[in-house]
Amino acid sequence: MSCPCGSEQEAANCCLPFVKGEKYPQTAEALMRSRYTAYVLANAAYLIDTTHPRTRHLYSKKSILQWAKENQWLGLNIEEATTTTVTFFAFFKDQTGTEHRHYEHSTFEALGGKLYYVSGTFEE
Rank of each mutant, 00 (worst) to 15 (best):
A30W: 04
T55V: 13
I78P: 10
I78R: 06
Q95D: 00
Q72R: 03
H100N: 14
C5M: 04
E8M: 07
K93L: 07
E79K: 11
T96H: 06
T87R: 14
N43D: 15
A44R: 04
L115K: 12
W73F: 07
F89L: 09
G75D: 04
T55D: 12
T50Y: 02
T27Q: 09
F18C: 01
E29P: 05
T83R: 13
Y24M: 11
T37E: 02
W73V: 03
H105E: 10
F108I: 15
I48D: 01
L47D: 07
Y36F: 15
N13R: 08
E10M: 09
V19D: 12
E8R: 04
C15P: 05
E8Y: 04
Y24C: 10
L47Q: 11
T37K: 02
E123A: 07
T107A: 05
A45E: 12
A12Y: 11
M1I: 04
A12W: 10
Y39P: 02
Q72V: 05
A38N: 02
L58F: 15
A81F: 12
S7W: 13
L31P: 06
F122Q: 03
E8P: 01
L65F: 07
E124Q: 14
R54M: 05
A68Y: 04
A44N: 04
G21I: 11
K93P: 01
K62D: 04
A12K: 15
R54T: 09
V86A: 13
V86W: 13
T84H: 11
K61Q: 04
A90G: 11
G120R: 11
Y36L: 11
I64G: 04
G6R: 07
L41K: 10
F92I: 00
E80M: 06
L76I: 13
A42C: 03
I48A: 01
L16C: 09
R56T: 05
F92Q: 00
N77D: 10
L65D: 12
Y39F: 14
Y36R: 12
S63P: 00
S7H: 11
H105Y: 06
G120Y: 09
T50P: 01
A38P: 01
T84C: 05
F92K: 03
Y103H: 05
T121W: 07
E22T: 14
K114E: 14
A38V: 01
R35M: 08
E8I: 04
C3G: 13
A38T: 02
C15E: 06
K114H: 15
Q95Y: 01
M1P: 02
G21T: 09
K61F: 00
T83V: 12
S2K: 07
K20L: 15
S60T: 09
T37L: 02
Y116L: 07
V86T: 14
E29A: 06
G120Q: 11
R101H: 05
C3E: 14
